[in-house]
């Protein structure tokens, strides 16, 4: 186990009094650990007086949550229509080809996990991609490669 269970308990304690606390707890755990560990599910369920199935159901319903560690960076490429209208499909293909992975997969060096996203609200400067909290617009193959190169070379980033 590479995470601190006390940390998880602290997150749960910070939110348990709030009505409908499941999502805020899951977000914070994922932020702290990088994913939602299976072992945390009964702890959350217990604290919120819900069943494990209800928590597991929520974790698996929302595409933001993952139960396995991702690569060091998550790169999201937008698949929305506004991006498609400006060559988004070519960008998707380029991303998959250049990284050698499909959507929802991680590169062998564990650096990049590639995910699709349905709209970043950046439609006026499409096509778009997101890394962490940063959104990139007017992305072509050259800028995509630059972003990836920066991510891989700058090991301390994020």
């Amino acid at each position: 186990m590479t995470y601190d269970t006390n940390r998880i308990e602290a997150i749960i304690d910070a939110h348990r009094h709030r009505p409908g606390a499941t999502l805020p707890i899951l977000h914070d755990i994922q932020e702290a650990v990088g994913y939602v560990p299976e072992e945390s599910i009964p702890i959350i369920a217990d604290a919120l007086n819900l069943s494990r199935a209800e928590i597991y159901g929520a974790v698996t319903y929302y595409s933001d949550f993952r139960m396995q560690p991702a690569g060091r960076h998550i790169v999201q490429v937008c698949r929305g229509e506004a991006c498609q209208a400006k060559g988004g499909c070519d960008l998707e293909e380029h991303a998959k080809r250049s990284l050698g992975v499909d959507f929802h997969e991680t590169t062998r060096d564990r650096e990049i996990t590639l995910e699709p996203v349905f709209c970043l609200g950046n439609c006026a400067c499409s096509p778009s991609m997101r890394v962490g909290d940063e959104i990139f617009g007017r992305v072509d193959e050259v800028t995509f490669d630059e972003v990836i190169r920066d991510l891989k070379s700058n090991r301390g980033a994020n």
Binding site: G80, E81, A82, C83, F118, C119, G121, N122, C123, A124
Partner: peptide
């Protein structure tokens, strides 16, 4: 939850 592609006014 402005999810429609092509919309960004809320944002």
């Amino acid at each position: 939850d402005e999810g429609d592609s092509g919309t960004f006014a809320d944002r």
